[in-house]
Nucleic acid binder design. Structure first.
Lengths: 199, 199
DNA sequence: TAAATTAGCGTACAGTTGTAAGCTGAAATT
DNA sequence: AATTTCAGCTTACAACTGTACGCTAATTTA
């Protein structure tokens, strides 16, 4: 086997190990290099062959999480084009994503308010992407002026993320209630934005 | 001096020390007993004379933060009664609180999504209080049915807290923009809720 | 006044951490 | 075939962690 491939494979093992550790009650800053190495099945010092730092690994994880988020967005779009209410489909897709990728979403949530300014900034960047894409969509859909659409999209994303945070700690039944609540709240925002725009 | 008083005083020094450590980039779970003891000026082992556990200290801190939050609410109410738009006054008061008590609000934010289920639950409880008080207010003010008022209040609190999180990492100028944005978003929610109720 | 309680201290220990130094063996290059 | 590169290893160390144990000195109680 190729040497480069081998190395990339090990690197991926490290990343996977880190994600699996986040599954339990650990944040990036509480994750030790040795722990990751142990989980990945390598010697602690070998870690440095792949990342100069444990923070470098952290940023990689945030990037991967952001990637997953964008895929989620794409999936929601496809479903909406196939028919159905935008809000309903979006929230349902989001909830599915959270349930299927708990640790990924948890990472974003935790580091968004975490202790590392660099991680916080990285997460904010990812969320900003999300808001921008939604803004464009809102402009097309509701024909709102950009400044109002931005406010609406931002509010919606914040509400959905908050609901997601709640959902993480809930079972399926409670999650259904949360989904219903946030859908209603998103409608409030949408009504309000439309009314405000036509003032 | 009384022995009990002396002890309470030391206990308060520990709590203060912990809060001041949170000022820097530390979460509760990353805060070590020895660090707190050092900051409080006592021997590491003396810590146990006051708290059985470092988690016990954590819960105490969350409680104190919740207390501060309720005082904030009371202050906002007084100001509103003195005249002024509810949304404007509330947001301004909240932003003042955050600026003046950064570490307190940071604690609530961090532990809301933190790694300890007990802390998360404690913070959720405090936020719930906040939502309930706001719900009652909304019912009185807008004459909405309780279920809709609850949804509105919940959305508003979530938006304000999100804005607060942003504000923590911002300077005065950016904070003004954030305040303006969240005010507009709160109006969206309010318009929407009122319209939804009169459907 | 004598006895009991206790807040705070110093010492001690086993466990964890990050990472420096140097070795090995296999893959890549010449 | 000989040489170079380098992913991963073992060993090592200083710094930190939580907390067990027993002492001291001052307050409280009897």
């Amino acid at each position: 086997m190729n040497r480069q491939e081998q190395k990339l494979q090990t690197r991926q093992r490290i990343v996977d190990a880190a994600f699996s550790l986040l599954d339990e009650d650990k944040s990036l800053s509480a994750m030790s290099l040795r722990e990751v190495a142990r989980e990945a099945g390598i010697a602690p010092t070998s870690f440095y062959r792949h990342f100069g730092d444990i923070n470098e690994l952290g940023l990689t994880l945030v990037d991967e999480a952001g990637l997953a988020l964008r895929q989620l967005m794409r999936q929601a779009r496809q479903r909406i084009e196939a028919g159905g209410g935008v809000i309903d489909i979006s929230v349902d897709t989001f909830m599915e994503f959270i349930t299927a990728n708990k640790n990924v979403f948890r990472l974003l949530l935790r580091e968004h308010t975490g202790t590392s300014a660099a991680f916080r900034a990285a997460v904010v960047r990812e969320i900003q992407h999300f808001i921008e894409e939604l803004t464009d969509y809102v402009i097309l859909q509701l024909k709102l002026p950009r400044n109002i659409a931005t406010m609406q999209a931002e509010a919606m994303v914040k509400l959905v993320f908050s609901a997601g945070a709640e959902a993480l700690d809930s079972d399926d039944i409670a999650r259904r209630d949360i989904a219903a609540s946030v859908k209603l709240q998103l409608r409030f925002v949408q009504y309000g934005a439309v009314k405000y725009a036509s003032r």
